[in-house]
């Protein structure tokens, strides 16, 4: 293992160990908040495969989060399948949906790619909204039958931690494999990459499927955590929110989006407790990122570190 990877590995181990201690602090609220942050962190990390690594900006990523959520909820509750089948089936379904949508989207680039992802995303929302008999429509799918062994908030916290840690590890391996490196090459110069023999379309499609699949994992965790899935999970604003999380953390860093998710979600929850003007705060955050923090919080930290080390 190379030195920098070794350091990342040990820092991750320390973080997981710290997270394991959260329930010991005795605050149900903190356990719930940490569970929510972990789910959103995975959601943002999944989007970063598409944005940060392959350079394709998706405005419809919430679709796969919602598909994972609805599918897991329906399999567990309507069909009464066990979790061991329901969750993997939901994840596969999210991946298949991503493959289908990606097949069309990767034929386009730049703004056209983004607008097509938005169109497909809103199509998924419309299906969830109108297919009332299956999804519950605007009322949401309420009362998900979560298995007893993870029914307790603490058990679910450990379950989420395990799933998110394993998924993040897997995503890290994917992003740092030859596939991930080639994705970066495609992001930097698609034409040059294709000249050296890279099948850029196939590569971008694979990135789309990977991103959709991991968003599906986050979605299925979200449905079980909330004991419900709501149509807002598929709406473009949810795609916008995860995009802002990714931007806030930093596009070109693997862990940046997770940090962005933690900061943005914590701010949202905290501010909503005092005022109904969260959208104003969100708009201001977006403004600051675009104007002053193009590489997000991780980029800012890197800049500060660089200045500090230059002085010393």
């Amino acid at each position: 293992m190379q030195g920098k990877y070794k350091a990342t590995f040990w820092l991750s181990v320390v973080l997981v160990a710290l997270l394991l201690l959260v329930p010991a602090l005795g605050s149900k609220y903190l356990v719930d908040l940490t569970t929510e942050i972990m789910i959103y962190a995975l959601f943002a990390l999944s989007l970063n495969v598409l944005i940060g690594y392959s350079g394709n900006i998706s405005f419809g990523h919430a679709a796969y989060f919602a598909i994972g959520g609805y599918a897991c909820a329906i399999f567990l509750t309507t069909y009464e399948w066990p979790l061991i089948i329901s969750m993997p089936a939901a994840i596969v379904l999210a991946g298949l949906a991503a493959a289908f949508v990606g097949y069309f989207c990767i034929r386009l680039t730049d703004i056209y790619f983004s607008m097509l992802t938005l169109a497909f995303g809103m199509l998924v929302w419309a299906v969830a909204f109108k297919w009332r008999g299956v999804t519950g429509g605007d009322d949401g799918f309420v009362g998900v039958a979560v298995p007893e062994f993870i029914g307790d908030r603490y058990a679910f916290f450990y379950f989420t931690l395990t799933v998110v840690a394993l998924s993040t590890g897997l995503l890290w391996l994917i992003c740092h494999s030859a596939f991930g490196r080639t994705l970066v090459a495609v992001r930097e110069n698609r034409m040059r990459a294709s000249f050296v023999g890279v099948d850029t379309r196939r590569l971008r499609l694979t990135a789309f499927v990977v991103a959709g699949t991991f968003a599906g994992i986050a979605g299925s965790l979200f449905a079980m955590y909330n004991r419900g899935v709501y149509v807002e999970s598929a709406f473009w604003t949810e795609s916008g929110q995860v995009l802002i999380m990714t931007l806030l953390g930093g596009l070109y860093s693997f862990f940046g989006p997770a940090l962005g998710a933690a900061v943005l979600y914590t701010l949202q929850v905290g501010i909503n407790q005092y005022t109904e003007y969260w959208p104003v705060v969100l708009g201001t955050i977006l403004l600051i990122i675009i104007m002053f923090l193009p590489n997000g919080l991780v980029g800012l930290a890197q800049k500060i570190s660089a200045q500090f080390s230059r002085r010393t």
Partner: peptide, 24 residues
């Protein structure tokens, strides 16, 4: 060193934000 310290700060910041909101 930058990369590890950035990751460390990232985790630290996340932990701090969570801690600030944890008071029941």
């Amino acid at each position: 060193i930058f990369e590890t310290s950035v990751a460390g700060r990232a985790f630290g910041a996340a932990a701090l934000s969570v801690a600030l909101l944890s008071g029941a």
